[in-house]
């Protein structure tokens, strides 16, 4: 194991020898071994094309949508191999939020929050449904803004509200882990700040893994940081430590804005 990659105290996810190729033998992610800390915010940083989104999307098996993508190695969630779980169970435990807010345009705000249950045909009593919707919207700080328009379409909300709605849709499932793929890159600074505050609050109940392009965002909200370059995991450890005292020269160059 690379000495620049720290172990963590309380791992919830273990990634072992993970390699991912989009084309035969052209690896976008190369032999990564890393652990992710429970109830912390982990940021994955790196320049464009370094494989950070590819790594993130492997954690809930989104790559299976594209059969030509080849994945080697193992990912364990609470010591259980994710390849042995059904995608329904896995994705209930590991939720995902995308770069662009993508609420379902044909559904109301209420139905968007409950969409995971509804689309999978999981029956709930009306009281339970109402409670899940309310709790989820409260925890993303959207409840006060939308409680009077719950049955209107979610696509009329602003971009930032839509993104918080998407986070609510994910946490309505009560997952263990939330993966976020550059969740604020399509948002304005105020909306970004609200989502960041939210993520820091959410780590009490969830493990958060965040891909970000934005170094200062990683510095502001993450506890652990990964730095990736050309498909390799260069450095991983406490965010404070990495930003103040990077061990690998590449990390230092990236953090000081020499490239990326």
């Amino acid at each position: 194991m690379n000495e620049n990659i720290d172990r963590v105290d309380n791992p919830i996810i273990k990634i072992e020898n993970l390699s991912i190729a989009y084309d035969k033998d052209k690896f976008a992610v190369k032999d990564i071994n890393v652990e992710i800390e429970k109830n912390a915010v982990t940021a994955i940083m790196g320049p464009s094309g370094c494989g950070k989104s590819t790594l993130l999307r492997a954690i809930n098996r989104m790559h299976e949508l594209y059969p030509q993508i080849e994945t080697k190695g193992d990912i364990l969630l609470k010591d259980e191999n994710i390849m042995d779980m059904s995608t329904i169970m896995l994705r209930r435990k590991i939720g995902m939020v995308f770069q662009r807010p993508n609420p379902f345009p044909t559904m109301s705000i209420y139905d968007n929050v409950i969409a995971g249950y509804k689309l999978n045909g999981i029956k709930l009593k009306k009281n339970d449904r109402d409670q899940i919707v309310e709790e989820s919207l409260i925890s993303v700080a959207l409840w006060d803004e939308v409680k009077d328009t719950l049955f209107k379409k979610g696509s009329f909300l602003s971009g930032g509200q839509q993104q918080r709605l998407c986070i609510a849709r994910t946490i309505a499932y009560k997952p263990d882990v939330i993966l976020l793929d550059e969740p604020t890159s399509a948002l304005d600074p105020i909306a970004t700040a609200r989502v960041e505050d939210l993520l820091v609050k959410l780590k009490k109940d969830y493990t958060i893994v965040l891909v970000t392009h934005n170094m200062s965002q990683a510095a502001r909200i993450s506890d652990k940081s990964m730095f990736m370059y050309m498909g390799n995991l260069i450095e991983y450890g406490n965010t404070m430590k990495m930003f103040t005292n990077p061990r690998n020269p590449k990390t230092e160059q990236y953090l000081t804005g020499k490239f990326g």
């Binding site: 995608t87 329904i88 993508n102 379902f104 995971g116």
Partner: peptide
């Protein structure tokens, strides 16, 4: 495509994403 991915990320089977989303 992001809508398709949103559905799949909730663990919804592919045919249901097509039919319901």
């Amino acid at each position: 495509t992001s809508l398709k991915e949103a559905g799949l990320a909730l663990g919804v089977p592919y045919y249901k994403v097509i039919l319901r989303v």
